[in-house]
Measured scan of single mutants.
Amino acid sequence: DIEITTNGEEDAKRVIKELQKRNLEYHIEVHGNQWVIKVR
């Protein structure tokens, strides 16, 4: 598993777009303004 910590929603959406392009499965956890994306 890979864990990507982003700085808020805009940053997270940019990362998610890339993950979707590669058809990767991911899970999002929001901790305040930090979005942690866990990639399987």
Results as ranks from 00 to 15, higher is better:
E9M: 08
V39A: 03
G32P: 03
N7Y: 15
V15A: 04
Q20R: 10
N7S: 10
K13D: 07
G8A: 07
D1A: 11
E3Y: 15
E25V: 12
I28T: 03
L19I: 05
E25I: 13
K21V: 08
R40Y: 14
N23F: 07
E25Y: 11
I2S: 05
R22W: 14
I4E: 01
V30N: 06
Q20E: 15
L19R: 00
L19D: 00
V36C: 03
N23G: 15
H27T: 15
W35V: 06
T5G: 03
A12M: 12
E29T: 11
E18K: 05
N33I: 06
Q34V: 14
T6I: 15
T6P: 05
H27D: 12
E3A: 10
V30C: 06
Q20A: 09
E9F: 12
T5M: 12
E29L: 06
L19W: 01
H31D: 06
V36P: 00
T6D: 01
E9G: 06
E29G: 02
K38F: 13
Y26N: 00
N7L: 13
K38G: 02
K17P: 01
E18V: 08
N33R: 05
N7I: 12
K17H: 10
E3M: 14
H27P: 00
V36Q: 03
V30P: 02
I2D: 04
K17A: 14
W35I: 09
E29A: 05
E3F: 15
D11N: 10
E10W: 09
W35T: 04
D11A: 14
L19S: 01
L19T: 01
G32E: 08
E9R: 09
V15H: 03
V39G: 01
V39N: 00
Q34N: 10
R22T: 06
K21Y: 08
K38T: 15
I2G: 04
H27R: 12
L24Y: 07
I37W: 00
I4H: 02
E29P: 00
D1Q: 11
N23D: 07
V15M: 06
I28Q: 02
N23Y: 05
I16H: 01
K21L: 14
Y26W: 08
Y26V: 04
E18N: 06
A12L: 13
E9L: 11
R14I: 10
E9D: 05
W35E: 01
K21I: 10
